[in-house]
Design a binder for these strands. Structure first.
Length: 387
DNA sequence: CTTCCACGGGAACACTGGGGTG
DNA sequence: CACCCCAGTGTTCCCGTGGAAG
């Protein structure tokens, strides 16, 4: 991770100029930062935060910089608990992760911030993952309860439409300033990659067309720098493992494949058992359809029937169809299957479900789970539904 | 225009892991 | 120790609804 962030100078300056009142112990405006994944939002924010804290220490002004990722800390209670614990050094006095009423955590937080004094900057990364806007509302009005200290909030989101569905009060108080991080274009991505190549690789081991290819591929995916870097790293790793003296375009293609497969493997492996069962049901029905030369579409009803069969076989309680429908859309969002809602007119509404990657691989991963060993030979008995 | 089936939102509930108090 | 409080999560129950075939 290099010290210098390329092509983000204007963003850094912008954010710094918004934050700089903190060094005069005044409240900086609350900021909303938008931008697709891998456009440097987090890196820029953390960088500016570090700088401000450093400057603050030099000049004797107290600035607290708190970074929280809302994908991990996604409820009102845990958010308040997390922030509060930032101000507590003693392990014994930390707030437990469950048990207290929320408003008690809230008032403890206020007391602590006031005692600490100075300016606190709270960064909420991936704010859109935060459940319910009550948490944001409470945070935004916290300043009115503070006497000694100031607090400002930086919200980071990759969803441009996020604020549209927000409580208008929260929207106005949090969105005092807005920043949009544009995606990197292919040229900028090349610069970033070259910078890393210089640090990480011996000179002359990389073909000239590798960096442009990685950049181009990542630029297609809305200019995601992280993706470009992953691609490069993976290419290098594969080339090394293959004992190739050079990194060539061939390895970039291999890396691209591997990244996709790794993603699916990881997601499937960490799925809860019920979801795994449902996924297996989809695959079984898919194979059944292939054998009987039925057209590709699988419906929720079919999946549910098979799923119930599977549950019975391993003597496990089965969920309701309502819940299964939810789990199917989760699998869809994870990109393991695609499930499109279609209407079959007289025959009602359903989802058109397809498996998106190779079923063989998925079945192999599923079999790692003990529960699935005895299902290896499961066959669909007869037609589950007349078409 | 009807009809039908699953979609999908919301309420209600059970359960978990923790708290405090008498 | 018994008892009740609290937030959060996963689930079930209930029900209005979309939309094209018939």
């Amino acid at each position: 991770m290099p010290e210098i962030l390329l092509h983000r100078d204007s963003e850094i300056n912008n954010l710094a100029s918004i934050m700089v009142p903190a060094l005069r112990q005044e409240t900086p405006s609350n900021v909303f930062i938008y931008g697709k994944t891998g456009t440097g939002k987090t890196a820029v924010t953390k960088f500016v935060g570090r700088e401000i804290v450093k400057k603050g220490e030099e000049t004797g002004k107290k600035v607290n910089f708190i970074y929280i990722n809302c994908e991990v800390v996604d409820t009102q209670y845990r958010l308040l608990q997390n922030i509060t614990n930032h101000f507590i050094s003693e392990w014994a006095e930390r707030i437990p992760f469950t048990g207290w009423p929320t408003d008690e955590v809230y008032s403890k937080l206020i007391k602590l911030i006031d005692k600490t004094g100075g300016v606190a900057i709270i960064v909420l990364d991936e704010v859109d993952k935060l459940k319910g806007d009550e948490a944001l509302y409470n945070l935004s009005r916290i300043n009115t309860d503070l006497k000694n200290a100031k607090l400002s909030i930086v919200g980071i989101s990759n969803d441009l439409k996020f604020t549209e569905f927000l409580d208008p009060r929260v929207k106005s108080s949090l969105g005092e300033e807005n920043m949009i991080f544009p995606p990197y274009d292919a040229g900028e991505l090349q610069d970033i990659l070259k910078q890393r190549v210089g640090i990480a690789l011996k000179s002359g081991v990389i073909d000239n067309d590798v960096v442009p290819l990685c950049s181009a591929l990542a630029a297609q995916e809305h200019g995601d720098a992280r993706r470009a870097l992953d691609l490069l790293r993976m290419s290098a790793e594969i080339a090394e493992r293959a004992k190739s003296p050079r990194i060539t375009k061939k390895y970039v293609r291999l890396a691209q494949n591997k990244i996709e497969i790794d993603r699916v493997v990881e997601v499937v492996r960490t799925l809860p058992t019920q979801s795994k069962l449902i996924l297996l049901s989809v695959i079984l029905q898919d194979e059944h359809n292939k054998k009987t030369a039925t057209t590709g579409a699988i419906t929720t009803g079919e999946v549910y029937e098979i799923y119930k069969g599977l549950c019975k076989k391993i003597r496990m309680d089965s969920l309701t169809q309502r819940r299964v429908a939810d789990l199917i859309s989760e699998l869809d969002m994870l990109g393991i299957i695609t499930a499109r809602v279609i209407s079959k007119g007289r025959y009602g509404r359903t989802r058109d479900i397809r498996v998106s990657s190779s079923t063989g691989d998925i079945i192999n991963i599923l079999q790692e789970d003990d529960v699935f060993k005895e299902l290896a030979s499961y066959k669909i008995r007869g037609q589950t539904r007349l078409i």
